[in-house]
Amino acid sequence: MADVLFDRSVYVGVMVLLAIGLYGMLAKRNLAKKLVGMVIFQTAIYLFFIQGAAQMGATVPVIEQDLGVDADTYVNPLPHLLILTALVVGVGVLGVALSFLLRIYRRHGTFDEDRIAADLAAEEIEGHTVDDHDADDHDDAEEARS
C-alpha cells in the first residue's frame, strides 16, 4: 500500500504544481504575478519530463568504466537534454514577456489588468485609436513637433 502511494505521489506533486502555476496565470490581475505563475508552470513541466527519465537502480548518465555500458545501469538521457535546451528557451520566453511588460508599463503606468483595460477604453472614447502602430506614429509626430 505504501509503495502504491509513493509510486504515484510524484505525479500528484507535479500536477499540483501545474495547477498552482495555471491558477497564477488565470486569477492574478497583476501582469508580473502572471509571469511568476508562468515560471512555476514551466518548472512543473520540466519536473514531469525529468521524473519520466528516472529508473530504479540506475545512476547518472555519465559512463563509468567500473559499471560497464549496460543501459540498465544509467537513467534515460533523452529527457535530460530536451529539458536542458527547454530551460534556456524558457529564459528567452521570460525575456520577451518582460519586454512586453515594460512597454505596457511605459504606456499605461500600471501592471493591473483592470486599469489597463479602463485606460484603453478611455482612449477609445477620446477618439484615439487603440491600434499600437497608429498610436506610435501619433507619438512620433508629437515628438517631432515639440
Partner: peptide, 11 residues
C-alpha cells in the same frame, strides 16, 4: 535527486 546533474546545474 532524480539523477539529472546536467539539468540541475543549468536550473
Amino acid at each position: 535527486g532524480m539523477a539529472a546533474p546536467d539539468v540541475a546545474l543549468v536550473e
